[in-house]
Simulated scan of single mutants.
Amino acid sequence: MSDLKFPDLPGITWQVSWQPSFNTKIQTAVSGKEYRASLMANPIYKLTLNYEFLRHGAKNELRQLVGLFLQTRGAFDNFLYKFPDDSAVTDQLIGVGDGKTKIFQLSRSFGSAFSEPVQNVDVVTNIKVAGVVKTGGYTVSESGLVTFAAAPTGDVSWSGSYFYRVRFEQDSQEVEQFMKDLWSAKKVQLIGSLGRRI
């Protein structure tokens, strides 16, 4: 598992695909009745990025993308990706302090009913307890665990940014040259990666 970061490249098009997916085991009885078991509490995200241009030469965007692919040996190693449309929260509720609990997991919500842990923290702007910014008395681990020196009481929230931990979905990556020193990568496929390399 590495802390390499996917480069911020300017040639990306608006055709970005973002696909959350779960793993559900479905068994259908002879009567037609279904029995379903959810094998994942949180989704794995698939992203498809299209780069209209990657400059070769002074800007070196081609070498940044291909270099990361070569460094991770394709799908072998994972890295961090900051998805522009989902990389930050403001005053995200992470729990209610009961005066006993000292550890809280950073999280982010989608809609009003779904929340999932944030485990690849970029920056924690602030931690609030009962609406008041804490200036100390806590630590935040790389995996997003907030540990308070004294157990808080009241709503606990955070503001900050985070990364997706992903890997290349395939062991090959096509890039095409369409002009001198200009290349494109029509399909850069990334998939969430929680596992460790062997």
Rank of each mutant, 00 (worst) to 15 (best):
G160M: 07
I198Y: 00
G195H: 02
V16I: 10
S115G: 10
I94Y: 06
F83I: 03
K46D: 07
D91E: 09
D86C: 12
A150Q: 14
I198T: 09
I103L: 06
G97P: 06
F79C: 01
D3I: 12
T90P: 07
L68I: 02
Q105H: 10
T153R: 06
E176L: 13
A151D: 07
F104V: 08
Q27C: 01
V66G: 06
K5A: 05
S141F: 00
Q27N: 12
M40Y: 04
S38P: 10
D77M: 14
D98H: 07
T101K: 13
L68Y: 01
Q173S: 10
R55F: 08
G154W: 01
R167E: 04
K59A: 12
V133C: 07
W18V: 13
A75P: 05
G137H: 08
I103T: 13
Y138G: 04
T125D: 12
I94V: 15
E176R: 15
W18E: 08
A150R: 11
G32L: 10
I127V: 12
A41I: 14
Y35N: 10
L4S: 05
D171F: 00
V166S: 08
Y51K: 10
S2R: 14
K180F: 07
Y45R: 09
Q71K: 12
F69W: 01
G95W: 04
R36W: 07
K134I: 02
L80W: 02
G99C: 10
H56R: 14
Q170P: 09
L4T: 06
A88S: 15
L47E: 00
W14F: 04
